[in-house]
Simulated assay, not measured.
Amino acid sequence: MYALRDKEMIFVFTGPHGAGRKTVAEMSGSTLGIKQVISYTTRPPKATEVDGQDYHFISPGQFAKAQAEGEFIEVSTVNDHLYGIKSKDIEEMFQRSGSIYLILNHSGAETLKNLYGDHVVQIFIYAERETLKQRMKESGDSEEVASKYLSDFEKELAYRDRCDHVFENVDLAHTVFDLTKTLDKYLNRNLLELD
């Protein structure tokens, strides 16, 4: 496992599916120059997703081989699909960037917190159930897939009390602005606040 240096931080974005974790994380990361460590998954890509940009899409066989060889520091199952983070990806990203971010479910967020302790900042992004349902419908998720994700809504929401920062993502620009200011305090970049 990679040993983090003093100022290296891992920002973990978590929260229920459809809350906008990915969009919020990407916009904040881009503003602050933080690089993303991308997860591996056995789930097929959605029409709008790009391999190596959204996830590393691999076969169940490839995933099992990597898992057997101890390449993953975290593995979780969501809707019968496997997701994992490789320790070498974290190490390589730290060599390029002083801080990184990941987008994980609550079990992945908890695993990283247990591994890296105070170097991990957990950010919980959420929206109300009806908002999530509408967003999933707009993004092309079937009624069945949306129902599966929403069946975990209460469990996902309960995890917010264990996170360092909680943001309700109703207005994207407002959420990203507030979040960027919050993360900047950890990075000591002293972004100027313009009226």
Rank of each mutant, 00 (worst) to 15 (best):
S30M: 01
D164Y: 01
R189V: 13
A68H: 07
A66M: 12
T182F: 15
A47R: 03
T175F: 05
D89F: 08
T41L: 05
K155F: 02
L192P: 15
G18H: 10
G52R: 01
D152F: 13
R129Q: 14
R162M: 12
H56C: 03
F177A: 12
T182P: 02
E144P: 00
F72G: 09
D184T: 11
I103N: 15
E92C: 00
D171W: 07
D80E: 12
S142E: 09
Q36F: 03
D195P: 05
F153W: 08
M136P: 06
I125R: 10
G20L: 01
D152N: 08
R189P: 00
K181M: 15
N188E: 15
A158W: 02
P60S: 10
Y116A: 07
R135N: 12
L172W: 08
E138L: 10
S147I: 00
Y101S: 01
A146M: 07
N188V: 13
D164R: 03
G29S: 07
S87M: 14
T131C: 14
N169E: 05
F11P: 10
L115I: 13
S28C: 14
H56M: 04
A146G: 03
A3W: 04
G15W: 10
M9V: 03
G18Q: 10
Y186I: 14
G84A: 08
L179P: 11
D6R: 08
S76Y: 13
G84E: 05
L191W: 11
I34P: 08
V166L: 06
K65T: 06
K22T: 07
L132G: 06
A127V: 03
R5C: 07
H106V: 11
N105Q: 14
A25L: 06
D195L: 10
L194Q: 08
Q36K: 15
Y159S: 12
R162K: 15
E110P: 00
Q134F: 11
L187F: 09
S99R: 02
Y186H: 14
D184R: 13
E49V: 02
K35S: 14
P45H: 05
Q122P: 02
A109P: 04
L187T: 04
Y101T: 00
L132C: 09
E156S: 05
G52T: 00
F124N: 12
M9Y: 10
A109H: 05
V50R: 10
R135G: 06
K155H: 05
L187N: 06
L32F: 04
V37A: 11
I10E: 07
L172P: 00
K181D: 14
F167P: 04
I123T: 08
K113M: 11
G140R: 09
V50Q: 12
D164E: 04
D118G: 14
T41Y: 01
